[in-house]
Amino acid sequence: MTAIEDFLAMLAAERGAAANTLAAYRRDLEQAEGWVGSLERAEASELAVLQCRWAALAPASAARKASALRQFYGFCLDEGLRADDPSHALPRAATRRPLPKVLGHDDIAALFSCAEREAESGEAQAIRLLTLLELLYGSGLRVTELVSLPLAAVPRDAPVLTVTGKGGASRMVPVGGRARQALSRWLTVRPRGGTALFPGRSGGHLTRVRLFQLLKALAARAGIDPAKLGPHVLRHAFATHLLEGGADLRVLQTLLGHADIATTQIYTHVDAARLMRLVNERHPLARRTPRG
């Protein structure tokens, strides 16, 4: 096996990296190897040419490629495949992770009001949409986690769902009273057969694209700009609103299924931005014009 293959095998076995992550790392490493030759034997001066190769890329893309190489060389050092780490020569793209879009409380209320009103009709599709909404905002599920839920994941006695997240990692997600009621209603009208909690037309489960379309249409009916809403926006709203309510960051990390708390910390920036706006808009000094 080559050093790249060994590295990818380590990511899969020890870190539980998902198939898409492994494929992206493979592409980045093999592309770099095509430009500089064997990565295992490349010198720092050879890696420096990647600055030109990545010049046309978006900063985030260049940062991802550099991260893959830095992790690869860290692995090579640990395994004794190299005595030095040439990754210091890699370009360091100045990237700033964008703050996630978050719906305000008023928009959330309008969205649920519309979905609940439509579900009162008893129509199966309307009840399904309300259930999906409750789980996205009430439990903070990722889109793929939600649509791929098996019927067996529905809680019997304990108020939790067993969810399979990124890298095949399982976690327990609490399901609030509202979401449990919605689930119970959905199970009474759900089409029989199949193993998916939310069956799709093709016999599998509801697709991500279809869920995206349903939410956009619901936003329009609720008087919300559809551009503001998507499945992941509701997950962001779940996290931000919990943090606003005093949730501990470590608890939030567990609920969201983040492997690294640095990923969860983005929500502290969202909350800080909200607090700063509040000070600027509501503080008495904000209404005074500076002299001079």
Results as ranks from 00 to 15, higher is better:
24 A>S: 09
25 Y>E: 00
25 Y>V: 01
26 R>Q: 08
26 R>N: 04
27 R>G: 00
28 D>P: 01
28 D>F: 01
28 D>I: 00
31 Q>T: 09
32 A>W: 00
32 A>P: 04
33 E>A: 11
33 E>S: 06
34 G>D: 01
34 G>Q: 02
36 V>F: 11
39 L>W: 13
39 L>H: 07
40 E>A: 12
41 R>W: 05
42 A>D: 10
42 A>E: 13
45 S>Y: 07
46 E>N: 10
46 E>A: 15
47 L>D: 07
48 A>E: 14
48 A>N: 09
49 V>M: 12
49 V>G: 10
49 V>C: 10
49 V>Y: 07
50 L>V: 03
51 Q>Y: 12
52 C>P: 06
52 C>W: 15
53 R>K: 12
53 R>S: 05
55 A>L: 08
55 A>S: 12
56 A>C: 02
56 A>Y: 02
56 A>S: 13
56 A>N: 05
56 A>T: 09
57 L>R: 01
57 L>Q: 03
57 L>G: 00
58 A>L: 08
59 P>E: 02
59 P>W: 06
59 P>I: 04
59 P>K: 07
59 P>L: 12
59 P>N: 05
61 S>M: 04
62 A>P: 04
62 A>G: 13
62 A>I: 01
63 A>G: 05
64 R>M: 01
67 S>C: 15
67 S>R: 15
67 S>W: 08
69 L>S: 08
69 L>H: 12
69 L>R: 07
69 L>W: 11
70 R>A: 09
70 R>N: 08
71 Q>C: 12
74 G>F: 04
74 G>C: 12
74 G>R: 15
79 E>Y: 03
79 E>M: 12
80 G>Q: 10
80 G>E: 12
81 L>E: 10
83 A>C: 08
85 D>E: 05
87 S>T: 10
87 S>I: 05
87 S>Q: 04
88 H>I: 06
90 L>F: 09
91 P>W: 15
91 P>Y: 12
91 P>N: 14
93 A>D: 13
94 A>Q: 13
94 A>C: 05
94 A>S: 14
96 R>C: 09
96 R>H: 14
96 R>S: 14
97 R>G: 05
98 P>A: 15
99 L>Y: 09
99 L>N: 15
99 L>D: 14
100 P>T: 00
